[in-house]
Write a protein that binds this DNA or RNA. Structure first.
Length: 201
DNA sequence: GCTTTGATAGACT
DNA sequence: GTCTATCAAAGCA
């Protein structure tokens, strides 16, 4: 596998930008990701250790972990190294490069192509992911990852979206200038001053 | 059991 | 730019 899935989540997150992620008939070029560092990261689902709901996070790197958010959205993560640490990379947004027609049909009419997979929940919709897809592995039929082809544009980083703790860790990465990158929205539960820690990096 | 809380998206002013 | 519907899972009694 050209992409080093065993790398830690921050390293893997950067490596995934520009990569082509294929689920079934749809391929997206990843333009926005976030890193979560397992049990050492208060914002990670794995922070409180193994739970039935998060079991796939603790499986080997390359495992897909899907979870439901706000009741209706399904978000996709790729488990990273170290093996068994519960670290993962959240796939936040991408540009559909294959299966465009099918992707459009899975979203409301009138959505511009650039926004088909803008945001984790939208990405999940376009790839038709469900909680049943949690635990699948890269490389199995209908699921694979190709490394970036050619030059990957400038990479920017910043605080993670919707995370109310550990805002000081700029572990959100995206490709500069991509229209398919979602706008930054702080968590509704973000405490005043939570961003003050940014200076302490 | 019962209450609280989001790794959001879309509608609305 | 601002507001909020919506529901499963976590957290607590």
């Amino acid at each position: 596998m050209p992409v080093d899935l065993d790398a830690d989540s921050v390293t893997l997150a950067r490596a995934l930008l520009g990569a082509h992620f294929r689920v079934g008939a749809i391929t997206v070029r990843l333009t926005e990701v976030e890193a979560y560092a397992g049990s050492g990261d208060p914002a990670a689902h794995a922070f409180r250790g193994w739970r039935p709901h998060t079991r796939h996070l603790f499986e080997p790197p390359g495992t897909l972990y899907c979870y439901r958010s706000y009741g209706i959205h399904v978000c996709a993560n790729l488990v990273s190294g170290p093996d068994g640490s519960g670290s993962a990379v959240l796939l936040r947004a991408g540009q559909v490069v294959e299966g465009l027609e099918l992707a459009r049909s899975r979203r409301p009419a009138g959505v511009p192509d650039a926004r088909l997979a803008r945001g984790p929940g939208c990405l999940g919709q376009v790839l038709a992911l469900s909680l049943n897809d949690s635990g699948r592995r890269l490389g199995e039929p209908g699921l694979d990852l190709r490394p970036p082809q050619g030059e990957v544009g400038a990479i920017a980083s910043g605080p993670r979206v919707g995370v109310s703790v550990a805002a000081g860790r700029p572990w959100r990465f995206w490709l500069v200038g991509e229209p398919s990158v979602s706008a930054y929205r702080p968590s509704p539960r973000m405490l005043p001053g939570a961003l003050d820690d940014l200076d302490e990096n």
